[in-house]
Design a protein around this nucleic acid. Structure first.
Length: 104
DNA sequence: TTCGTGACGTGCA
DNA sequence: GTGCACGCCACGA
């Protein structure tokens, strides 16, 4: 297994540990996985996930507390709907990090 | 090998 | 609050 594949495994394992009703930022997820400053890697890794994945990809938002998809995109609507399902409040495209951020 | 690109972050105006 | 520049890492052309 290559180095980059191991890093992606680390990220996915960390993602799987994010509890229901909580969110993490791209940068936070990277750091928790032992990969500081690899926020962009999180994005490209999530992009490769299969559509039927059971991983909570929707619990990952950017450092501003916003959903990183364009407002009118499909991905945006799917992520928003899933977050709402978990009881997370969303104003516009924004989630309150102070209330919902996961702190292990 | 180099270069452009991306579901990002931080600092600053 | 917004926008921009720059840094970061991986990947494909």
């Amino acid at each position: 297994m290559s180095e980059s594949q191991q890093r992606q495994q680390q990220l996915l394992q960390t993602l799987a540990a994010v509890p229901f009703g909580r969110v993490v930022t791209y940068g936070q997820l990277a750091e928790l996985a032992g990969l500081p400053r690899a926020a962009r890697l999180v994005g490209s890794t999530l992009k490769k996930l299969p559509a039927d994945t059971t991983l909570p990809w929707h619990r990952v938002i950017n450092a501003s507390g916003r959903i990183s998809f364009p407002i009118d995109s499909d991905g945006y609507r799917r992520q928003r709907a899933r977050l709402l399902d978990e009881g997370i409040e969303i104003q516009g495209n924004r989630v309150s990090l102070t209330r919902y951020r996961w702190q292990p």
